[in-house]
Design a protein around this nucleic acid. Structure first.
Lengths: 343, 343
DNA sequence: TTGTAAGCGTTATCAG
DNA sequence: CTGATAACGCTTACAA
């Protein structure tokens, strides 16, 4: 608890120069002689002076912070994303203000308002769950973008000052479904837990692939899991209920590795041979893939690249450059032990 | 991109009062008549005015932010902690500035300095890895505490303005080891990946329990894993190497669930029956416990409670109350499928 | 109950 | 190259 912190005035006094000069050496403006520069630097060192960030913020109208919004920062996938963002941002001289909003729209709104009132320089929305199928529900993002650039990870939304970086979930799912089908697995259950726009894309990828293979998909083949995101037992129970309800399936494509892992455990509990009699494909290629036994085949959506590109884009926008409003990368199916080789 | 944002002066003008009055209704100081209050509130609503946080910060010398430091915010356990902290802090009107430091001391130093220069109101060090066995290496924390209160989660350090909240790792490990021994498993390998102070405590718990049971522990019975924290295969390989090197073991106590899960996979790969022929106990009781098959017995260290208490303590300190310098909770061994019932 | 005015600690614009 | 000085937008004595 410093009593009265040392200010630019103290330095100016000690160094025998004006505060303007001190400010100049602080921001290493070149118009200052080596001699006086040294005096100032010495004084700074002696006192252990650090510029007051608030005063600085007030003058410059920025404190170089980016607001990071995520529904749940402890979610395996979101946590990784946040990690990458924080690192990239810090390397660019920005700090990260983290807000976990939960999955309710009104909380997301509140959080975004909070960040704006704290005058962050930009906002990153981590995860597809921030954009809703119904356009009205996305108004809060459009509004936020009137104040600061808003960057979306794994989501798409058209709007002024809004930039999107995402993985092509539709295509990834389409391809993964195709792979599973051509490996001989036909009775595939689609298991998901997100109603986001990106979630809808994944589902459509699955449906289209099935349709294009001439297979009809019934409603109960699409299982929405409503429980907690880590509730493996709940997931297993749901699969069990579906099966015992009469709907047989010998493969699961999941919108998330946790769901996929639960499918693996479910299949094992039933005594099915994986991958011969029962195949599973997950999504995100998270650490759960190698935790699972057998190890999960999973779709890798290049999270690190996405985060990097998104940060670059944000930096570009902040320095006034023209940046692409939408950039999308391809995903890649990583084959492990829960899928057969193509026939 | 607002052109010129609306200030307290605009409001004062529109409402026909002085800025002081506006400020008063903003901070709902009670000395203001209902009539003028309404005028001001109306003006605020009309204009969509939000107080400038920087100016506020400058005047009050706080922007109500807490710095959260973690080596790796994507680590399963740390991510959960960060999540709890963020939530608790926000409920108390504080924002969270997140810094991921990695595990290198000099980066931790840099990060903590950064946070202080940004004038956070307090700092939370998430995870035992911030305090080192060698006292000199902890100087950076002591220094930081001269500026703001520093809170340690799962670590202990004596010092002015430093507060610790932790789980009793020593006792938890001691007890867990005892349980395993009394279940009949005697050749236990201790598997760890952290050299922190808390890591040392866990190890000592293990050693003492073994000693008290009259069992000698050799050096190669303590396996330090140096690789990446999610490298399951690397962990398995190390266990394999130990075994094929001639050291037989039929149980593993791990300092972390990931390590434990790798031990389960290792044992299964060898065809050992779990838990009859091979038992495993993990630490943290993370979601990996239920991801594992069989499910991991694991030590729960009440993370949510710890985070809550720590936040409470911090809030107390910030409001000038006297707070305990050290509070420690007990852990609990959650029995699942990788341990036998006691004989 | 309300207004005036003095900070808060910088940056930036002008003169010199 | 350097020094005054006016912003920046808010809080808070102190007066009225």
């Amino acid at each position: 608890m410093k009593e009265h912190s040392v200010t630019i005035y103290d330095i100016s006094e000690q160094a025998g120069v004006s505060i303007a000069t001190v400010s100049r050496v602080l921001n290493n403006s070149n118009n200052v002689s080596e001699a006086t520069k040294k005096k100032v630097l010495d004084a700074i060192k002696n006192t252990g002076y650090t510029p007051n960030a608030f005063a600085r913020g007030l003058g410059l109208n920025t404190m170089k912070t980016i607001g990071i919004l995520a529904a749940d920062s402890s979610d395996l996938y979101l946590a990784k994303a946040i990690y990458y963002f924080e690192e990239n941002l810090r390397n660019n001289g920005y700090d990260s203000l983290l807000c976990c909003t939960g999955y309710a729209l009104k909380d997301k709104k509140a959080a975004i308002d909070l960040l704006i009132s704290k005058k962050v320089d930009g906002i990153i929305l981590v995860g597809s769950n921030f954009v809703y199928p119904d356009a009205c529900d996305n108004k809060y993002i459009i509004n936020a973008a009137e104040n600061v650039p808003v960057m979306l990870l794994n989501a798409e939304l058209e709007g002024n000052n809004i930039y999107c970086v995402s993985s092509d979930d539709y295509k990834s799912m389409y391809k993964a479904t195709g792979e599973l089908l051509s490996s001989g697995i036909k009775n595939i259950l689609y298991f998901y837990n997100s109603l986001s726009y990106s979630g809808a894309l994944k589902e459509r990828g699955f449906r289209d692939a099935m349709k294009d293979a001439g297979i009809n998909v019934s409603e109960r083949q699409l299982q929405y899991f409503e429980g907690a995101r880590e509730d493996i037992h709940g997931m297993m129970a749901q699969l069990d209920k579906v099966a015992s309800g009469g709907h047989k399936f010998n493969g699961v494509i999941a919108a998330d590795d946790t769901l996929a892992l639960s499918a693996v455990k479910y299949a094992k509990s039933k005594g099915y041979k994986i991958p011969e009699d029962f195949s599973v494909i997950g999504y995100n290629n998270s650490m759960l893939a190698s935790c699972s036994d057998p190890e999960l085949s999973s779709i890798d959506n290049k999270l690190e690249t996405l985060c990097q590109k998104l940060t670059e884009a944000l930096m570009g926008v902040l320095s006034g450059e023209e940046m692409p409003k939408k950039t999308v990368f391809g995903g890649e199916l990583i084959m492990r032990e829960t899928t057969r080789k193509k026939k």
